[in-house]
Amino acid sequence: MGRYLLFFSYLGNRYRGLQKQVKNSNVLDVDCVQGALESALLTLKPQLLNPPVFVPSSRTDAGVHSLHNAAHIEIESAKGLLYHPVTVLRTLNRHLLRCKHEIRVLQCIPITNQFHARHSAKSRTYLYRLMVAKKFGDRGAPICEMNRCSLVGYENFDIERAKEATKLFVGLRDFRTFAAVNKGERQIQYRRVISDLTIERGSPLLPNDPLSDNFDFWDVTCKGKSFVHNQVRRIVGALCALGAGRVTEKDIVTMLQVPSHNNWNPRITPASANGLFLVKVEYDPLEIEKNTINFKESTFFPPEEELRK
Rank of each mutant, 00 (worst) to 15 (best):
H101C: 02
Q107A: 02
R233K: 09
E155T: 10
C240G: 00
F295W: 13
S66A: 15
L44C: 12
F301Q: 07
Q114F: 08
G63F: 10
R308K: 15
A71E: 01
R186C: 03
F8S: 03
D31G: 09
D216A: 13
D284C: 12
H84K: 04
L106N: 09
L276I: 06
Y190K: 01
E305L: 15
V105T: 05
N24F: 02
N294Q: 15
V181K: 00
T60I: 05
P285T: 11
G171N: 13
F301D: 03
A141R: 15
L42I: 04
P266Y: 04
E287K: 05
L168N: 08
V281N: 08
I143L: 14
T221M: 07
S66K: 06
C149T: 14
C240K: 00
S195A: 13
L49M: 13
N262D: 04
S272C: 06
S58Y: 08
T299P: 09
L96S: 07
R173F: 14
F54Q: 07
V232F: 13
V88S: 01
A179G: 13
N182R: 13
E160Q: 14
E160R: 14
E249A: 12
E305P: 02
W264H: 06
A165W: 05
T221R: 10
E164P: 10
H101T: 07
D29I: 01
R233D: 00
A117P: 07
E185V: 10
K45L: 15
Y15E: 10
S123P: 02
F178T: 01
R3S: 01
N291T: 08
T177W: 06
I103P: 02
A273E: 09
R308H: 12
K23R: 12
D216E: 14
E164A: 13
G202Q: 15
E282C: 11
